[in-house]
Design a protein around this nucleic acid. Structure first.
Lengths: 143, 143
DNA sequence: ATTTGACTTAGAGTTACCTCTAGACTGCAA
DNA sequence: TTGCAGTCTAGAGGTAACTCTAAGTCAAAT
């Protein structure tokens, strides 16, 4: 019914160092200490870590995550702020995804190009290949 | 038919500082200098910058990008390596996108939750709402 | 001819996010 | 009870990717 820092490190893939660092930065406000000073993590803390991971991996800086946690701790008076934060984050994320998709198309094109190049032994030859040029035009319609 | 560092900065959204930094790091091996030592960028350099942007925004560190450029400069003997690099990068990217999608679903859920919470003035009330619980189960089927 | 603004270099400083060290303490197993 | 892995704190160190400073050069406009 409680986890040591090492157990949580294994569960989350973070290091114990990082968990202490997160706590120091105010990202884990619910972690308790045992009588002898050892951290005792609960499932609530694991839920928070999972939310932190979600926000971090979608590009929110630790400061932003901390802001959210601080608002959470302030209680229901900050509900609008938190909603607004999530909405903004979602918007950023959608923009980001659009960009990623374009970049992926470009990388797929590069793979086709380099497959052709490896086949013929020459990048230049591949670049003048009719199929490749057609492919390229899909990704760079302006050119 | 050549661009100054300031013109390229405007075109790309990077600062002149950053462009010099990229050059120092070996990311812009084709940029020439005028007689008086000013950098002269060409369209080829803009193409490279655009590729650098693509790789950087898809999470490749500058070192990885430099490796690619170094291989490019070595010529056709590194075609396989470059193909392999792009394939690996594509794989990473696909994994990343899957993760992002999951995170986005979670953020959408949070928005619904907080919309409900703002409506009722209480996060706790919102969390016990039947619709919200159903929504939550879509994202956390295990719970 | 002078001013204005962009450009040059080398190198120091910044921010975010860890990552590690040292030296001490804890808790369980043999 | 001895040993050893795990944990503690405070604080230093590291890395990536910029970002800026200083001190000076260059070039177009007035």
């Amino acid at each position: 019914m409680g986890y040591s820092i090492g157990q949580v490190a294994k569960k989350t893939g973070l290091t114990a160092h990082t968990l202490r660092y997160y706590e120091k930065e105010g990202l884990l406000p619910f972690v308790k200490k045992s009588g002898s000073g050892l951290r005792v993590f609960t499932d609530v803390d694991l839920d928070w870590l999972s939310m932190i991971e979600c926000l971090k991996e979608t590009g929110m800086p630790l400061k932003g995550i901390k802001q959210y946690i601080d608002w959470f701790l302030e209680g229901d008076s900050t509900l609008e702020k938190r909603l607004e934060m999530f909405k903004q984050h979602q918007k950023n994320l959608e923009t980001e995804m659009q960009k990623l998709k374009k970049h992926m198309a470009r990388i797929s094109y590069k793979i086709k190009l380099y497959e052709k190049a490896v086949e013929t032994g020459s990048l230049e030859k591949a670049q003048t290949d009719a199929e490749i040029i057609k492919e390229r035009q899909k990704i760079f319609p302006e050119k």
